[in-house]
């Protein structure tokens, strides 16, 4: 926990707290590491009465139950036979694995999972590397028009996806890639504005002397980026990677636009197809949909617990920069 302010973008972005000092010149702000750490650890800043804290805990416990219960409900329902799915019991009355067997028979789930893994890995790796490259171009080099160009990068974040959606579809259509997995990740080869912003902030926080020293030692421009800057940037790269994994794994719209054949579906697209086939449209086999939902969601829950620190700190930093 101690290291966070040094090696995560939260620190990189937030710790310099650009606009903070002047207005409060006479008031010491939270600055020493130990103090920051204390706040992070206990989350208790102002003295509270014991009663107040207990009340807060009770409220949190109730709210926490509301936030967790849909998961519990879903997992529990996936182990119930068809007739009992909607009985709202916490523990299934009759416990069964049939739904998992059945969903595997009804849908090419293994194929969907594999497609999703392929797209997710390719998308996350390419966007991380390309965004890091561009971010480095914007943070290390000084050239005329840099500010304006970077402004353009930020401006593209404002553009609703709907505006470019159709021509981009026509590009992939022209290249004969509609119906394949390519359009779901290949756009990531060119970096993404939000990650470029995130990584640039991080690069700007690195001491410049380090790169000058490498330069004097004869390192090439690429060498400085690849061997010195990038390894130092690992925490921010991890945040980018994890954010993109989540974004791609859960993406529905692109899969709806580009994927036609069930064999090429990603899991969210497949789940939507199951909703169409077994839900309101047809056979009312909600237990299949429920089970497929569990299978779609579980990998994200695992990712969250593996990379919780990166995710939470990454999210927190997006707000502070705003």
């Amino acid at each position: 926990m101690t290291g966070i302010d040094v090696d995560l973008p939260v620190g990189g972005v937030a710790a310099p707290a650009p606009r903070r000092e002047p207005a409060l010149a006479t008031v010491p702000t939270v600055s020493t590491p130990s103090e920051v750490e204390r706040l992070r650890h206990t989350g208790r800043r102002r003295p509270r009465t014991k009663v107040g804290r207990v009340l807060a805990w009770i409220a949190l416990a109730l709210l926490g139950l509301i936030f967790v219960y849909p998961f519990v409900w879903l997992v529990s329902a996936s182990f119930k036979p068809r007739t009992e799915v909607f009985d709202n019991r916490l523990i299934p009355q009759s416990f069964t694995f049939d739904n998992y067997v059945q969903v595997w028979q009804e849908a090419p789930l293994a194929l969907w999972l594999m497609n999703t893994v392929i797209v997710t890995v390719l998308a996350a790796v390419t966007v991380t590397l390309s965004s890091a490259m561009v971010a480095w171009g914007f943070s290390y080099f000084r050239f005329r028009g840099r500010g304006a160009l970077f402004g353009l990068v930020l401006a593209t974040m404002m553009l609703p996806g709907a505006v470019t959606m159709i021509p981009v579809f026509l590009i992939w259509n022209g290249l004969g890639q509609v119906g394949t997995l390519t359009p779901l990740w290949a756009g990531n080869l060119f970096g993404s504005a939000f990650y470029i912003f995130l990584l640039r902030q991080f690069f700007l926080g690195l001491p410049r002397d380090l790169f000058e020293a490498a330069r004097v030692d004869g390192a090439s421009q690429w060498g400085i980026f690849w061997r010195i800057a990038l390894p130092l940037c690992k925490p921010a790269l991890a945040v980018t990677l994890v954010f993109e994994v989540q974004a791609v794994w859960t993406d529905l719209m692109r899969a709806l636009i580009y994927l036609r054949d069930s064999a090429t579906f990603t899991v969210p697209r497949g789940l939507k197809a199951l909703v169409d086939a077994f839900g309101f449209g047809g056979e009312w086999h909600w237990e299949i949909i429920i089970t497929a939902s569990v299978i779609t969601t579980i990998p994200m829950i695992i990712i969250f617990f593996v990379a919780q620190r990166q995710i939470i700190d990454g999210v927190a930093s997006t707000g502070i920069k705003g």
Partner: peptide
Amino acid sequence: VFFLPKMTPPVAVGVLFLL
């Protein structure tokens, strides 16, 4: 606990809504 639902794919959230 509060963040966890944010990880749920929106398709699954749509399914949960119906249920």
